[in-house]
Each structure stands twice: as C-alpha cells, then as structure tokens.
Nucleic acid binder design. Structure first.
Length: 423
DNA sequence: AGGTATTCACATGAAACTATTCTCTGAGTTAGG
DNA sequence: TAACTCAGAGAATAGTTTCATGTGAATACCTGT
C-alpha cells in the first residue's frame, strides 16, 4: 500500500518536472525570439493616432462647429451619428484634445467632460450621469439616496461657481434615452437658462441613426443644431487604416502579403467597422506571437476570426444572470433533438430546469423578454413567426457551431449546478 | 372560387409591485467634564 | 452636553408580475355564381 503510494507520488513528481521542463523551454524560446509587436497599444480602441486617416473632413467640420468656444462664445450643440467603428469618438476626442491644448496655452476657462452613457452603473441614468459629471468637478455624491432635484441643485451650483465654457460629450446617448426617456436630455438642453455664468454645449454621439425618431421634437431641435454623419469605411479605407496602425504596432517585415487586405475585407463585410478590423489584427498578432512565429500569416488571421467569435459568445454567456442561463440551457437542450423550437416549449422545459436547479421560475411574460434579450445579444436566433391558425411565436435556433455550443453548454451546466442529470 | 371571420399562441405595452442600496434625520444612549 | 448609535423614512433603481391589448396568417365558414 505504502509502496504503491510512493510510486504514485514519484510518478506525479516526474510528470511535473517534465512539464516544468517543457514550460521552461517554452519560456526560453519565447524570450529568445523578439516580440513581433513594437507598440501593441496602437491596435487598441482607446488609442488616438496623430493622424486620423479618412476622417479629415469630419475633423474639420467638428472643429468648425466647436471653434467659437475658444472665443468664449457658446458653440452650437452638435449631434454625431454613425455606426460602431466609424471613428466618431476618435475624431471628437482628437478635436477636443486640440481645443484643450490651445485653451490651456492661453489660460482660457474651458472645460471638457466626456461621458459614455453606456457604462452600466456609471452613467446610464439621469442621476448617475449628473453624479459622473460632478465627479469631473471634484464633487463626489452618493450613488443613491438623494432626490434628483438635489443633485441638480449641486450640479448647477458647481457649474456656476465661476464663468466657464463647458463642452459636455455624451457618447452612446441612445442608451441614456432608451433607459430614462426624454427627461434627462430635456433638462440638460435647458440648462443654459438656469445658469448665470457658465455656458454648456452638448455634443451627442449615437450609433443608431433612427434614434431621433422617438425623441421629443423640442429636444431634437435644440440638440441637433448641427448634425454630422459618419459613413462606414469601405474596404480600401479600412486597408489604409490598418496599414497605418500596423506600421505603428508591429516591427517591420512582420506582415505577410495579403493579411491586411483580408483583414480589411472581413471588417468591411461587417458594415465597415474599423474597431473590429483592429481587434482582428491584434488577435492575429497575438496568436502569431504565441506560436513564436516571426510573421503574421493568413492562418493566424483565420484563427483570430474564429477565436474572436468564440470569445465573444462565451463572454456574453458568462456575463448573463442565472435566469438567462436557465433559459439558454432549455434552448440548448431542446435543440439537441430538433433543429428549431418555439417559445412555449422553451418555457415548459425552463420550468423543469428551474425545479432541478431549485430556482423559482419566472413568468412566461418575463421569459419571453429574456428570449428577446438573448436574441439581441446574438446568443440565440429568435425571429417571430406566424403559424397561422396555430398562433404566433418565436422560432428559435442557435447561431453558432457545434464546438461553441458544447462549450456554452458545459459553462451553463456549471453555473446551474444541476443535481439530477438533465437529459 | 373568392371573401371575411375566427382562432391560436404568443408578442408587446403599461402599470404596479418587490427588493436592494443608499442617505438623511431625529430619538435614544453613552461617555466625559 | 457633545458624541455616538440605530431605526425609520425617503429616494433611485433593477427586476418582476399582473393585466390588457395586439398580431399575422392558416383555417373555417359563408356567399354568390
């Protein structure tokens, strides 16, 4: 008995030492090879390059609209539309940076506040938005508990402490409206009537061009005194953007023929999203680096595309609450047997799963919403289908391959910790 | 044959409710002079 | 008497439930030829 144990321990130890040897060897090799990156940050979304290619015109226009601020006159409010990855945020940040540079040089009382309204629990409600802005003024307020009026009082007081030209940039403003309705924007657009010394200029950025349709016309007219649309990049433009960034990010001669072209083509297919193109290139670079290759090859790019898609799905699933997991699990289980299913079936399976995971089941109304949410997240495909006399429901399928599916299923298994096997 | 009424199985909207997190306020308690 | 503690009220917010209404096309039924 003791002998056997000894042998087992010895075996484990040798395995470990062997593994250690391999890992060590990998590290040695990794270090001996120079990284193919020279400045990886240049491929990240936050990076602001010195020159923004294919957006010169928009840059000029934004600058022209906001220029009066330097003469301490209030510029028109500006509204910017454009799909994700069309350079809206980049352009506005660049222009504001320049304005600030000139202003600080001449000690002009100009302040710029940038808020991303999408950030959950940070600036996605009227209250939180104000608190977030106030933080820029060095005032900290509780995250809850105060009446909104009180927060406004502090807000006005802080803004009016001394004469100031304030430019407030609200990125992804549609998120704010979606959640809180018109009131937040209405109050902000009317801010200038309540302020004595300070002038507030609003710059709204939004991905959804249809967004203003549901907006109160009064807000709409005051918010979009000037409008600017950012068109998507085409494949050629994406290519030159990638060219610019890759020359900053990678060492010379790292790119093989055709990688940038293919990368641009991938992204152009998805409505010209430059952010996605850069992500793709970065991941391809990382994969090449990890494989201790001295060049980024087409294979790395293909692999990167798969990895990005898989990571995107897995991350999205991991971030969902438990009830969403239960619904998704019901969908996965039912789709093991059939190619498409309907809401009612999902609900009854979901109830069963809830009982085996000892969770209190939600109502069908709520589950219907959850299915809609999962559809928006791209975790299920659930278009509404009318079956004539047999009713109207969602036809649900899964939009990803078997490999991702099984990963997701095991992730859900773990999260739900189902006691009795759910077959 | 062609028209229109019905029917199904949910989708969708609105309002109300619940639970959580947090601040503010004032009453009660305690410690120190 | 000042400092501290603690419960209760009030507010914002997220997540749900309840109730009511809407929806689109297959099918059933009716009408006129």
């Amino acid at each position: 008995m003791l002998n056997r144990r000894f042998l087992l321990v010895k075996l484990r130890l040798t395995l470990w030492v062997k593994l250690l040897g391999e890992v060590e060897e990998f590290f040695e090799q990794y270090l001996s090879q120079d990284s193919i990156f020279s400045n990886k940050a240049a491929l990240q979304a936050q990076y602001i390059p010195n020159q923004i290619v294919h957006r010169e015109e928009q840059q000029q226009q934004v600058a022209r609209v906001l220029a009066p601020v330097l003469r301490l006159q209030k510029p028109s409010n500006l509204f910017i539309y454009g799909k994700t990855g069309t350079g809206k945020t980049l352009v506005i940040k660049q222009v504001l940076q320049d304005i600030l540079k000139v202003a600080t040089g001449r000690a002009l009382p100009i302040k710029i506040v940038y808020v991303n309204c999408k950030l959950k629990h940070v600036a996605d409600t009227e209250y939180r938005l104000l608190v977030q802005i106030l933080r820029d003024f060095g005032k900290s307020l509780p995250t809850t508990g105060l009446p909104t009026e009180e927060v406004y009082r502090v807000f006005y007081a802080a803004l009016d402490e001394q004469p100031l030209q304030l430019v407030l940039v609200l990125d992804e403003i549609d998120e704010l409206i979606g959640k809180t309705g018109n009131s937040a924007l209405y109050n902000l657009t009317r801010c200038n009537t309540a302020l004595l010394k300070t002038r507030l200029t609003l710059v709204g950025i939004c991905n959804n061009i249809m967004f203003t349709d549901g907006l109160d016309p009064r807000i709409k007219s005051s918010l979009s005194e000037e409008e600017l649309i950012f068109p998507p990049y085409n494949a050629l433009q994406l290519q030159s953007i990638l060219q610019q960034r890759s020359s900053l990010a990678f060492r010379s001669n790292v790119m093989t023929q055709g990688v940038l072209e293919k990368c641009a083509a991938f992204a152009a297919r998805e409505h010209g999203d430059a952010r996605r193109a850069l992500d793709l290139l970065r991941v391809a670079g990382e994969l090449a680096d990890r494989a201790i290759s001295s060049q980024v090859l087409i294979e790395h790019l293909d692999e990167a595309e798969k990895k990005l898609e898989k990571d995107h799905h897995l991350e999205a699933v991991a971030n969902q609450p438990r009830q969403y997991h239960a619904v998704l699990y019901a969908v996965c289980k039912l789709l093991e047997q059939r190619s498409s299913i309907f809401t009612g079936e999902v609900y009854s399976r979901y109830q069963f799963i809830c009982s085996s995971a000892s969770m209190r089941p939600l109502t069908q109304r709520r589950v219907s919403d959850i299915l809609g949410d999962l559809d928006i997240l791209g975790l299920v495909h659930a278009p509404i289908l009318s079956k004539g006399r047999y009713g109207r429901t969602r036809q649900i399928t899964l939009p990803y391959g078997a490999e991702v599916q099984s990963k997701i299923r095991s992730m859900l298994d773990e999260s739900l910790a189902l006691q009795h096997a759910e077959h």
